[in-house]
Design a protein around this nucleic acid. Structure first.
Length: 477
RNA sequence: GGUCCGUUCGUCUAGGGGUUAGGACACCAGAUUUUCAUUCUGGUAACACGGGUUCGAUUCCCGUACGGACUACCA
């Protein structure tokens, strides 16, 4: 059997990270079996449509490396397939599996107010339609599915096994809205059938409506070609409870995914590498059964299987995501050199390479090269307070000597020796001066190896910075 | 409320009728590093609870608790 899967987002906003994982699992299954990955835009809700969201989603998928085989060119949009759904739903009406209903949203609201457990079932079907019979010819109508009463429907889920629902819990869902657009249920089933989808891999939030979908396949007579279902465990909020949603974008420290979506910051802007996101995400709900943690996309395709997806929801742990990012930054030295050069016009390749070399084991995000490495380009303008605390006549003596030595012998390989020379000539312990030296060079107390940093800076620049600190020390004291 | 799904260290997870319950992130300690980070070594830390079944249950079954999803002319 050909594996044909689809990722079917609705363009109602940014693609969130859970959506990326769903797309990823679909993609991995498709590639693993040399199948087809289809993108289908489910834009049947006119009210929630957000211009630009569709391109955003497409770009996001591209950025993380999820390739689409069908549905990109030309784009498949459900809003452009209205006639198809109309045709199919009328078949359902003809065969008695669906019917026109004339009650308005307000009517239903009334009913729900009267009965909090209101359900649109066989009984309401009779009652409401009888009382509304007069409106039939002209008023707006929807088409509802005629749910068979009191039947057990079993959904065979690849992840959860057999899940059985009784139709007494399933109401007569709307299939076609009064604006002529299909609902998810109709469009989804019709499209999955028409596109010969083999596996429906989607979030667990769809499990409760899966029996409806099974019933729909039966009503259409498509039972034999019904796709296999796999309902994915949900991604949960990192802090407490609840599923991850697009609204979490607003919460500081937990941005949505990735490219700039209007005002919110995404993972890309936050400095995450696509490889790290994929690697982190794939392990949230799936594992290879080995202790391997770092995977390239090709390795994932090789290792992936639906059977090893687990059932329980996973909380998003930003610290682990950062760890993955760190791992990939280290692997991507050459790219980091390019990044640095692209962001600092005053940086040549040789310098960039050396900076990346000393910095790459200590950064988490690309942008850390810029912040941690700033002192390689700009002399500090302010100093950490330890400079004031530790400055002393001895320091004055030592640094004056060190500056002199450096001016005399600017050999970049001689820093270590020069420091010792200055120390012994002024009779101070070099160790006690190192922290002040660091502050003088970098402005702060933490950073990459000092000697390496000075080598990159060069003796003249280091001497200049020392001179500046001597003056500063004199003024400060 | 109802229906459905779930529950192994703080987090992601492996495992599975008899194990010292394994790994990773995080955390703590030591070593290395004239700083911080890295690296290395070590450590703390888990089978939700109650009943069965069984010689034996964390593993199988049933309940309970807790968590989650759904319950729209949204997807």
């Amino acid at each position: 059997m050909d594996v044909r899967v689809r990722f079917a987002p609705s363009p109602t906003g940014a693609l969130h990270i859970g959506g990326v994982r769903t797309a990823l699992y679909n993609y991995l299954l498709a590639r693993k079996h040399k199948g087809t990955m289809i993108l289908r835009v489910e834009d049947t809700d006119q009210n929630r449509y957000v211009p630009g969201a569709e391109d955003y989603i497409v770009n996001s998928l591209k950025w993380v490396g999820i390739q689409i085989d069908e549905g990109l060119e030309p784009r498949i949009r459900q809003s452009e397939r209205k006639e198809i759904y109309k045709e199919y739903v009328s078949k359902l009406v003809e065969t008695g599996h669906a019917y026109y209903a004339y009650d308005t949203s307000e009517d239903l609201e009334e009913e729900r107010k009267k009965d909090p457990n209101f359900q649109y079932d066989a009984k309401t079907r009779m009652r409401l339609n009888n009382s509304l019979a007069g409106k039939k010819s002209d008023g707006p109508s929807v088409i509802r599915f005629k749910t068979p009463s009191n039947v057990d429907v079993t959904v065979n889920d690849l992840i959860r096994g057999e899940v059985t629902f009784n139709t007494s819990q399933v109401d007569d869902k709307v299939l076609m809205k009064s604006d002529g657009m299909p609902t998810y249920h109709l469009a989804n089933v019709v499209d999955d059938h028409l596109m010969r989808i083999s596996h429906v891999i989607r979030g667990e939030e769809w499990l409760p409506s899966a029996p409806l979908h099974v019933l729909l396949y039966k009503a259409f007579g498509w039972e034999d070609t019904m796709p296999r279902f796999a309902h994915l465990p949900l991604l949960l909020k990192p802090d407490g409870n609840g599923k991850l949603s697009k609204r979490d974008a607003d919460k500081a420290g937990f941005p949505i995914f990735p490219l700039n979506w209007q005002e919110s910051i995404g993972y890309k802007e936050a400095g995450y590498l696509p490889e790290a996101i994929i690697n982190f995400l794939v392990l949230l709900g799936w594992n290879p059964g080995t202790e391997q943690e770092i995977f390239s996309m090709d390795e994932l395709i090789e290792a992936f299987s639906l059977e090893r997806i687990n059932k329980a929801g996973a909380k998003f742990d930003i610290q682990k995501a950062q760890w993955f990012n760190q791992q990939y930054i280290r692997k991507k030295g050459p790219e980091m050199v390019e990044f640095l050069m692209a962001n600092r016009s005053d940086c040549d390749r040789q310098k960039a390479e050396r900076i990346v070399e000393v910095l790459k084991d200590r950064v988490t995000f690309q942008k850390d090269f810029l912040t941690m490495g700033k002192f390689f380009f700009e002399a500090p303008t302010t100093y950490d307070d330890v400079l004031n605390k530790k400055w002393s006549p001895a320091a004055d003596l030592f640094f004056t000597k060190l500056e002199e030595v450096l001016r005399r012998n600017p050999d970049p390989a001689a820093f270590k020796m020069n420091i010792e020379v200055a120390a012994s000539e002024t009779n101070v312990k070099s160790g006690s001066m190192m922290q002040i030296l660091r502050v003088a060079i970098t402005g702060g107390t933490a950073g990459p190896d000092l000697v390496s940093s000075m080598e990159i800076l060069g003796a003249p620049e280091v001497a200049d910075r020392i001179q500046k600190v001597i003056e500063y020390g004199k003024k400060g004291k």
